[in-house]
């Protein structure tokens, strides 16, 4: 230890005066640079609190194992065949579950004073929100990659090969980017991080289970089947499967992207408005 002042945890008045004396204000950074800096903050949080990642990947991993080995034989005749069917669906599910955490993180920020500091800085106003979602996208990629790798280890072999799998991951991440604005609105409206988590899953759970993630809708009774077929998550899963299979379903991909764009178009302005007036 050389720095005695640091070791004893005291301030050094001379050093303080020197440190605060000469700081010319640099020119303001651009909008993109500012958003990227906030994105960096999001990535640092993933690094420091990896438990959050565990939360959102463990459940899907459990689903993969449980459905494949417990029900796979009964649903699809063999575990191998079922894995082939269910894995793209679970990829969608696991990444979509991660989007809830965008709202949870934002809400956590708001209960602390740090947002007050961001809002008192001379920076582009939507930058903290955009940056946070950029950081979150990294989380989506990680969650998706975990599922793809696990599938591969268990014997899943996509017909579309690596390019197909990556295209599928890309589509799911883009969709999640649109969807997460729904949860940032919840994050700004609800009182506590846990309330956001509960509300988020209350929306996502039924939507995910009443989709074609686990079963082929052809096997379902009429009214249920009708719902499953219009559920946007089913469309996204269909698009993802088609990319993984190396036979892209243009309509499903386009509809998925349109839904993501529509969600962002509605919920992004609401988010920025709410954030500004908090």
């Amino acid at each position: 230890m050389t720095a005695t002042s640091a070791a004893s945890g005291t301030t050094d008045t001379v050093a303080v005066r020197r440190a605060i004396a000469s700081t010319p204000r640099p020119p303001r950074p651009g909008r993109l640079a500012t958003a990227l800096t906030f994105g960096w903050r999001g990535i640092l949080k993933i690094k420091h609190v990896p438990e959050q990642l565990l939360d959102v990947t463990l459940t899907p991993v459990m689903f993969v194992l449980m459905f494949t080995y417990l029900f796979g034989g009964a649903i699809a005749g063999s575990t191998g065949a079922y894995l082939q069917y269910v894995l793209p669906g679970i990829l969608v599910m696991s990444v979509l579950f991660t989007t809830v955490y965008s709202g949870v993180t934002l809400n956590t920020d708001l209960t602390k004073g740090v947002v007050d500091r961001f809002r008192s800085l001379p920076v582009w106003r939507p930058a903290p929100l955009l940056g946070a979602l950029l950081g979150d996208s990294v989380r989506y990629v990680i969650a998706g990659t975990v599922i793809l790798v696990l599938g591969f280890v268990l014997g899943w072999r996509p017909d579309g090969g690596l390019p197909g799998a990556l295209a599928a991951l890309g589509l799911v991440v883009v969709f999640s980017f649109g969807l997460s604005w729904v949860f940032t609105v919840m994050g700004l409206l609800l009182r506590a991080p846990n309330a956001v988590l509960n509300a988020g899953f209350t929306v996502l759970f039924p939507l995910t289970f009443l989709s074609n993630v686990f079963v082929d809708p052809a096997t379902l009774p009429g009214p249920l089947r009708a719902f499953v077929e219009v559920n946007p998550i089913s469309v996204l899963v269909t698009a993802t499967r088609s990319l993984v299979d190396g036979a892209p379903d243009g309509t499903a991909v386009a509809v998925s992207l349109a839904v993501a764009a529509a969600l962002a178009a509605v919920f992004l302005p609401i988010t920025t408005r709410l954030y500004r007036s908090r």
């Binding site: 020119p27 960096w40 903050r41 949080k45 740090v114 800085l121 920076v123």
Partner: peptide, 19 residues
């Protein structure tokens, strides 16, 4: 300040945001 970052990261973050 951001409790989930280190002290140094907090200051670097603000410095970067200020340009």
């Amino acid at each position: 300040v951001d409790e989930e970052l280190t002290g140094r990261e907090n200051l670097v973050l603000i410095a970067r945001l200020l340009g």
